[in-house]
Design a binder for these strands. Structure first.
Length: 418
RNA sequence: GUGGCUAUAGCUCAGUAGGCAGAGCACCAGAUUGUGGAUCUGGGUGUCGCGGGUUCAAGUCCCGCUAGCCACCCCA
């Protein structure tokens, strides 16, 4: 036994083990297939970004203010592990000159994100997202498109029973006036709000709307609704998005209190939840429009819209519904050498790999034990190699399903794996 | 960041009222003079998560820490 504590994984992160991967592959290929059907191209951006890139877009959000993995590298650069992908994708869109091609640029991305949260069911410090972003157009058609893409993906992986919540939070033109009305409404109530909300009142009043503390609930109903104060353009956009979703037969609920966690959203915001939702850690996908983001990062003002889907939660639900992909044995053929025949066994395996996935059992165990593990691994064939066989360059091929066993020359083996 | 529950063999867990550390599974070997699945038999030295404390005696009681699970918060 070890003298000291064995080294374990970092808190809040986890391994996705071979047995888990069939369902992960299904979730991922479903996403990828759907993104391609919608004309999206894959992009991979770094996990590391300048801390400033992240902080610029969400100073007031938990994900950035409290949960950011931030550190200085050896050169003194202030870096962060990305807590979300959109800022990095927008940065790459400009740096990669995608802004000079046909617009919009339709991009999708898979990768890990990092947030220093307290771990819990469906919430990890390293978690995996599928993102789709349409950058370079303000058309309402794209808002509906990314919603439909997310919806189609979830339906394709067996999670079609969904609740979609939708809202519009206006833009730089109309939101300031609305926020003044909201503050005016809440100021007289300030003493009755809970601590965080008293701070939010002046700093980030929109977040008063999605507060879940019981003592703040009674005041929501009387609060002005952002959708009642949209400017003409935002109002037309909001109507257009809803009309497009209706035409696509995608059901949604208007949630006037949905404001989203990140600061950069404008106009459309949405979240997908599983149908029979009871728990809290259950948002499967969410997103919205971010017309002010590019400018906030110092690039030319450029509209965009997109969403992020949580693969950890999607795979968990898929597994719970029995949607796990079929597990296949790692090798179809297992070579079981007798005694000290490692060189010969490796050669036989090499020959067999022309036709099948082949592994060799090099363990110094009894033949019986090797047969047992071959059986447990689910190998379809076993190639038995004795000293006498090896000298004649033959082997015994055993079909593990039928139990039939025949002697064959090494070179004859591949054509028998059918 | 806050709260509740938990931590004993590779895994899942028992361990009564403080008094010799257990079971099932898995794994290995044998029955079968080296050929899988069934059955039977044999095989356990584990800092009882880490550190302190109480006690003649602590897996068991107390404190701290770490980690896991769950909830709050927040979100994916």
């Amino acid at each position: 036994m070890p003298r000291s504590e064995p080294i374990k994984a970092v808190r809040g992160v986890r391994d996705i083990l071979p047995a888990d991967l069939p369902v992960w592959r299904a979730a991922k290929s479903g996403a990828e297939d759907m993104a391609r059907k919608f004309g999206y191209e894959e992009i991979i951006t770094p996990i590391l970004e300048k801390a400033e890139l992240i902080e610029r877009v969400g100073e007031d959000t938990d994900a950035v203010a409290k949960e950011l993995y931030r550190f200085d590298d050896r050169g003194g650069r202030n870096l962060a592990l990305r807590p979300e992908a959109t800022a990095g994708v927008v940065r790459a869109y400009f740096e990669g000159l995608l802004n000079q091609g046909p617009q919009p640029s339709r991009l999708y991305l898979f990768g890990p994100m990092f947030r220093y949260d307290r771990p819990q069911k469906g919430r990890y410090r390293q978690f995996f997202q599928f993102n789709a972003e349409a950058i370079g157009s303000g058309a309402a058609g794209l808002d509906a498109e990314v919603v439909e893409l997310a919806h189609s993906w979830l339906a394709a992986v067996g999670l079609g029973d969904l609740r979609l919540e939708l809202n519009s939070i206006g833009d730089a033109k109309c939101r300031p006036a609305y926020l003044e009305r909201l503050k005016a409404y809440y100021r007289p109530l300030k003493s009755q709000l809970h601590g965080d909300c008293q701070l939010r009142l002046e700093k980030n009043p929109l977040r008063l709307l999605d507060c879940k503390v019981p003592q703040c609930q009674p005041f929501k109903a009387g609060a002005p609704r952002v959708t009642d104060f949209l400017c003409d353009e935002c109002s037309a956009h909001w109507a257009a998005v809803r009309r497009l979703l209706d035409a696509a037969s995608i059901e949604y609920q208007h949630n006037p209190y949905l404001v989203r966690g990140l600061d950069y959203y404008t106009r459309t915001v949405f979240e997908f939840y599983p149908g029979g939702a009871t728990g809290q850690q259950d948002a499967l996908a969410s997103g919205g429009r971010y017309d002010g983001l590019a400018e906030e990062l110092g690039w030319p003002a450029t509209p965009g819209v997109g969403f992020a889907g949580g693969l950890d939660r999607v795979t968990e639900l898929m597994a719970a519904k029995g949607e796990d992909g079929a597990a296949s044995p790692p090798a179809d053929v297992l070579v079981l050498p007798d005694g000290d025949l490692a060189v010969e066994a490796a050669e036989v395996a090499r020959i067999c790999r022309a036709a099948r996935a082949v592994a060799v059992d090099y363990e110094p165990k009894s033949l019986r034990a090797k047969m047992r593990s071959a059986n447990k691994l689910g190998a379809r064939w076993v190639v038995l190699l004795s000293v006498e066989d090896a000298a004649r360059r033959v082997a015994q091929l055993r079909d593990m399903t039928s139990g039939d066993q025949t002697e064959l020359a090494w070179d004859e083996l591949p054509i028998h794996f059918v």
